[in-house]
Design a protein around this nucleic acid. Structure first.
Lengths: 121, 121
DNA sequence: ACAATAACCGAAAAAAGATTCGGTAAGCAT
DNA sequence: ATGCTTACCGAATCTTTTTTCGGTTATTGT
């Protein structure tokens, strides 16, 4: 896992939260696991826009920081399952709230985005 | 304002929310304005870790996407004040929730972070 | 005249983050 | 034996974001 050159201020709660679930796909991964999609390959099929590699990396971080836990059976075909820890579950209400806010205002934001894109051509 | 090469999916609420207040300092800026610190130079003095430039840029984005509004008096010394719109105010509860989550778990996350850093030396 | 300040912008450079690609190991089916 | 899948990792590359730096404009205080 990459170490930053510029130190991060973990006394700010928002920064701590961003560290845990701020990656591009971490929210989606937490959502997928919450829905019972808990094997890496299945998560990859669920989140089609993300590469397998980034899912692996973000799973590793979520695991390291304790949002999910890993249940790997040795043997074959190497069944690995991830599930939310109680810490991971405590994030879900925030994700729901963010998702609700975003869906409520998505049309407005999309409209502004279109304006931006047409201005920059 | 930079235009992305990889298209972003604004049908996902979380992605929309991240677009609005996902930047490194946007949450802090919204918090500052909410506390009545509403002139660029004052925000810069309040958020000492951020460069003046990034505050300008993120103010411009927050303005463009309608979270804040600008009240500039021409004349001098060019008094510009930003204040939250109702859209901007609607973000505050989410910021509070994230901040609370982060502060609740900051010791745990910091401890994991320390472990990571000592392992990587 | 000259320094100081406020707001703001462009562009280069650095840092952080995501993606692509090629590889490992292990077992199953053909 | 060959190809398939699952899980995972390293490294190069590309994209995105942030920072740094050097400007502009206009006004006030000395």
């Amino acid at each position: 896992m990459y170490t930053k050159k510029i130190e991060e201020d973990l006394d700010c709660g928002i920064r701590v939260a961003a560290k845990m679930f701020g990656g591009k796909w971490k929210c989606c991964i937490l959502d997928a696991i919450n829905r019972g999609i808990n094997r890496p390959a299945d998560i990859g099929r669920y989140i089609t826009d993300a590469s397998a590699r980034v899912i692996e990396m973000q799973l590793a971080e979520l695991l390291f920081f304790g949002a999910i836990e890993k249940c790997a059976e040795e043997g074959f075909p190497k069944r690995t399952e991830y599930r939310l820890t109680s810490l991971g579950e405590s994030i879900l209400p925030i994700l729901e709230q963010m998702d609700r806010w975003g869906l409520t205002h998505s049309e407005f934001i999309k409209e502004r985005q279109r304006e931006l894109e047409s201005a920059e051509l």
